[in-house]
């Protein structure tokens, strides 16, 4: 028997393949295509205290081997998530990780507390993932995830208020992601997700306008994978907490690059759009690879990168 289960803080994952926030809805959208019991964890679409309308369209545009999105964090709000979506997710024997965000430190804290309270009351949420790629309006639109000082403040505040395992999803739009990961770790994060999308832009040359209504968007898909692998590798060298690797994973081999570079788990995002069963196929592929390599425990593989 090959062991592919991994631990992220107090979470036990059957396999290291999670869904990436924003690409898997609230789980039910893909339940027709994937047995949700077979996932390592389900990370749901980013939640805020109040429902959010998001950006005008066009919100997405395909680019070579990738796509830009500027959805604008549209979501139904934490209350509706707890009342309408969580009961469905509770049926499955798979940890649910609630991704959340706010526009101020206070909003982050209140969102985290609301999620923790809901979980304490009736279960169903097993960890929190903080999206810190939002601007801090109070601090003059500094993005929480790109300024170490504001990041330290918001992660520290949420850590103090939240009793669920706390994962911080790092922005790649920084000079030294290893340093940012260290800041998250020192502020009390239990794990980090690496990476969020990379800011990009596409221009409609006939209309001389940006293609996206929001002008810029987040680039995802295989186009960003080498950047993500490099960043995961850097973060793994910088911190001791578990690292969840993501960015353009389309196949099991892609996921293996992240694991070997040091990621304890991986998240699959854009691949679900092109193949709704990608998550499960990748988990199966990892298991197959281990059998081929004669490995019995995935921990033999994680961080096994040889230095030259």
């Amino acid at each position: 028997m090959v062991n592919i289960s991994v631990d992220i803080a107090s979470l036990k994952l059957k396999n290291p393949v999670m869904t990436a926030s924003g690409t898997f809805g609230y789980g039910e959208e893909y339940s027709e295509f994937v047995d949700l019991n077979r996932l390592g964890a389900i990370v749901v679409k980013g939640l805020s205290l109040l429902p959010k309308e998001g950006n005008p369209t066009p919100r997405i545009v395909e680019t070579p081997a990738g796509m830009l999105n500027a959805i604008g964090l549209q979501n139904i709000g934490i209350k509706a998530f707890i009342n309408e979506k969580l009961p469905f997710l509770r049926q499955f024997d798979t940890p649910v990780i609630a991704n959340f965000f706010g526009d101020s430190i206070d909003e982050y804290v209140r969102a985290a507390v609301e999620l923790c309270n809901a979980s304490a009351a009736s279960g169903g949420i097993h960890a929190l993932e903080m999206n810190i790629s939002c601007p801090n309006k109070q601090a003059g639109w500094i993005v929480f995830g790109t300024d170490p000082k504001t990041m330290e403040q918001v992660v520290t505040a949420v850590r103090k208020a939240a009793n669920l395992p706390l994962i911080v999803k790092l922005s790649p739009n920084v000079t030294d992601i290893g340093f940012m990961a260290k800041v998250a770790e020192n502020s009390g994060a239990d794990a980090v997700s690496v990476i969020n999308t990379i800011t990009g832009m596409a221009v409609d040359i006939r209309r001389r306008r940006p293609v996206l209504a929001n002008n810029t968007g987040g680039l995802s898909g295989p186009a960003i994978r080498p950047i993500a692998v490099r960043m995961v590798w850097e973060v793994c060298k910088a911190v001791k907490i578990p690292v969840i690797g993501m960015g353009g994973i389309m196949t099991a081999n892609d996921a293996l690059e992240f694991l070997i570079a040091g990621a304890r788990a991986v998240a699959v995002g854009t691949a679900s759009f092109t193949n709704p069963q990608a998550t499960v196929e990748i988990a199966e592929g990892i298991e197959r690879f281990m059998a081929e390599e004669g490995l019995s425990d995935i921990n033999e593989l994680i961080g096994s990168l040889k230095s030259i």
Binding site: T23, I60, E62
Partner: peptide, 20 residues
Amino acid sequence: HMACGVGACLGCVVKTHSGQ
């Protein structure tokens, strides 16, 4: 424009009088 086609990515929303 759609990315997923299954309701997950929220790329293809349209504004209606009863919300997105």
